[in-house]
Design a binder for these strands. Structure first.
Length: 578
RNA sequence: GCCCUUGUAGCUUAAUGGAUAAAGUACUGAUCUUCGGAAUCAGUGAUGGGGGUUCGAUUCCCUCCAGGGGCACCA
């Protein structure tokens, strides 16, 4: 429709001898200004020395006669906008479209034939699944779904640090306090390992003896030289990874690829060493390093290519690869394994500058990768009140936050007439939704403030509000099965706000992809839910007096379908009841 | 010091250079014996300061102020 209007205007400009294509056709924010609006008159007015409103009026008169049948009327308004109003038939047809397309409503073929890899979550074995991982997961999953909905083959990847000092600290802690009770759940065992990590980490900073032992353990892990350590390592790695899987299951994520830091170092180091003198440089050792017999580090001078970049170390003076080098190994592995058209990485903003430097270095080695690597950075979740403890009094982790949210829902439904299984299912679906929505409703980049006192929102601008609205619509649909609409098939003459929003869904999905910002979908769905609730409050659908019951029911069904598809894009399930 | 990023109602957030800056929450007051009140309707209330570009700036540019992050051998 938008293209048709643009074409129409371009033709009209031609007859007026105006050369200009830099105008826009958009949906006005307020529906009283039409369904589409163009600023063409304001853009061109100065060029031809005319008043914008006068020009708008002449353009209007010229196109009025060959309007497509979907447009009912056009008007000149404001400073010189030309507003287009869609016809009744257009809305009736768009509702029919939605009902025909069902779960495919909103999908596009924009990325057909493309392969897109999204790396996100990236928790570290032996450490807790913390709040940052929850955020990255919610955003990454939603981005993956938007990409998938836009027609791309989507590959979900997770990169996990299974070697390094943090592992040695955890193992030191475990060996000191002993193995946990066999009967503990996986999650409890993982939490125990998290506490051991914390203990080991504290001792590393305060106790020289512990520090030495941890360094020995660290070497033993890399070389797999100590059988006892290997045993603890294999056990702990497997327990924490299993615990992560339980969380992914709750959150609704299924990864296609798991990359591990332990596997990336060798490939990365090879690439770095091959490019010394070309991309990387060897720095002069400091006097202290020389005295220890060490050479200089292998570094990359980012600022030589872009003054906004900086220098980073890829191989340290002890000859060990750093995280940067592993990132190169990881990127190579991604392109060699799957060769994606676009490789997206989701992390917190603190990695932004680091990522730019590493991606520049990779681009110098593989120029064809440069435009295919994208980094999405999000802010941190902060706490409004200083308290950083969960409901059970422990340190807040992503996992505890998730369970707290689910517990709140369980309390809300505890007196309902539902089976325990239903209650548990609802608490999971709604609890996850509350948390995910509070992450996904804001644009990326800025920090999210989470008010622990008020807890997560369940009303108004929230995930549960959207789900509740969908459930209400679903109740009507269920009730309608035993309601005869045979003699109630009139089509209303008025166009509802709900209909005006519904047909825009595919455009919202496109915008979310173009900007890689899932919050556009969240904002749209809240707007849509609010329009539905108004409609619901003003319209009694399944009553004998309503001669439009049949069509109203179609609107409700179309709304339900759109909400369901939209929530799916946010990684949120739509419950049957709640 | 340099680089990145963020400043919008009391609070949490929207707004592809466009029309009266949009919601939620809180507060005030209404609706409702309903197809599910986790709802609806009405009211109060905001673009950090100062310049500039533009017919038009929350949006782009400059500057100042304030927060957050990052700047060599951690990940």
């Amino acid at each position: 429709m938008k293209e048709e209007i643009q074409k129409l205007i371009l033709e009209t400009l031609k007859t007026l001898n105006i050369e200009e294509s830099n105008f826009s056709v958009e949906h006005p924010e307020d529906f009283k200004n039409g369904d589409y609006s163009t600023n063409v008159a304001m853009v061109c007015a100065k060029k031809i020395g005319k008043n914008p409103r006068e020009l708008a009026t002449s353009i209007k008169e010229l196109i009025e006669n060959n309007l497509p049948k979907e447009i009912e009327k056009i008007e000149v308004a404001g400073a010189g906008f030309i507003n287009f109003y869609l016809s009744r038939d257009y809305f009736t047809n768009s509702i029919r479209d939605i009902l025909e397309n069902k779960n495919n409503w909103g999908k596009s073929s924009l990325l057909k034939g493309k392969k897109i890899m999204v790396e996100y979550t990236d928790p570290n074995p032996f450490k807790p699944f913390h709040i940052g991982h929850l955020m990255t997961n919610a955003i990454g999953e939603s981005v993956s779904r938007v990409v998938e909905f836009s027609g791309a083959e989507t590959i979900r990847a997770n990169y996990q640090g299974d070697v390094g000092p943090h592992v040695a600290k955890a193992i030191y802690g475990i060996m000191k306090t002993g193995m946990p009770d066999e009967n503990m759940t996986i999650s409890e065992k993982a939490q125990y390992i998290g506490r051991c990590y914390s203990d080991g980490s504290n001792l590393y900073d305060t106790d020289d003896q512990a520090k030495k032992e941890i360094e020995i353990i660290n070497k033993a892990i890399y070389g797999r030289t100590d059988e006892e350590i290997n045993k603890v390592y294999d056990w702990g790695r497997s327990i924490t990874l299993d615990a992560f899987e339980e969380i992914y299951k709750l959150l609704g994520t299924k990864f296609n690829h798991y990359f591990f830091e332990s596997e990336m170092a060798i490939a990365g180091e090879k690439v770095v060493r091959e490019n010394i003198g070309k991309v990387f440089d060897e720095s002069d050792p400091t006097r202290e390093q020389s005295e220890k017999g060490q050479t200089g580090a292998i570094i990359f001078h980012g600022e030589n290519y872009d003054k906004k970049l900086h220098t980073r170390v890829f191989i340290n003076s002890q000859g060990l690869p750093t995280y940067e080098t592993k990132e190169i190994g990881l990127t190579m592995a991604k392109f060699e394994k799957e060769n994606p058209d676009i490789s997206i990485v989701v992390t917190a903003t603190e990695q932004s500058d680091y990522m730019k430097v590493v991606q520049k270095a990779i681009s110098l080695i593989h120029p064809d990768y440069e435009i295919r690597m994208k980094h999405i950075a999000h802010g941190m979740m902060k706490f409004a009140s200083g308290k950083m403890s969960s409901r059970k009094g422990n340190i807040v982790t992503g996992e505890s936050l998730l369970h707290d949210s689910m517990d709140i829902v369980l309390e809300k439904v505890k007196d309902r007439e539902l089976t325990d299984e239903e209650k548990n299912n609802i608490s999971r679906i709604v609890g996850v939704s509350a948390l995910k929505y509070s992450i996904l409703k804001s644009s990326l980049g800025s920090d999210i403030v989470y008010d622990f006192e008020k807890s997560i929102s369940f009303e108004g601008d929230s995930g549960p509000y959207l789900q509740y609205t969908a459930v209400r619509a679903n109740s009507i649909i269920i009730k309608a099965k035993s309601f005869n609409t045979e003699d109630k098939k009139e089509i209303p003459t008025e166009n509802t706000e709900l209909e005006k929003l519904l047909y825009q869904f595919p455009e919202v999905v496109d915008r979310a992809y173009a900007s890689l910002e899932p919050h556009h979908i969240a904002t749209y769905l809240t707007h849509l839910a609010s329009a539905f609730n108004s409609f619901y409050g003003n319209t009694k659908i399944l009553v004998d007096e309503n001669k439009c019951a049949d069509y109203h029911l179609k609107i409700v069904t179309a709304f339900y379908q759109t909400m369901k598809n939209g929530l799916w894009l946010l990684g949120i399930e739509t419950p049957e009841k709640m």
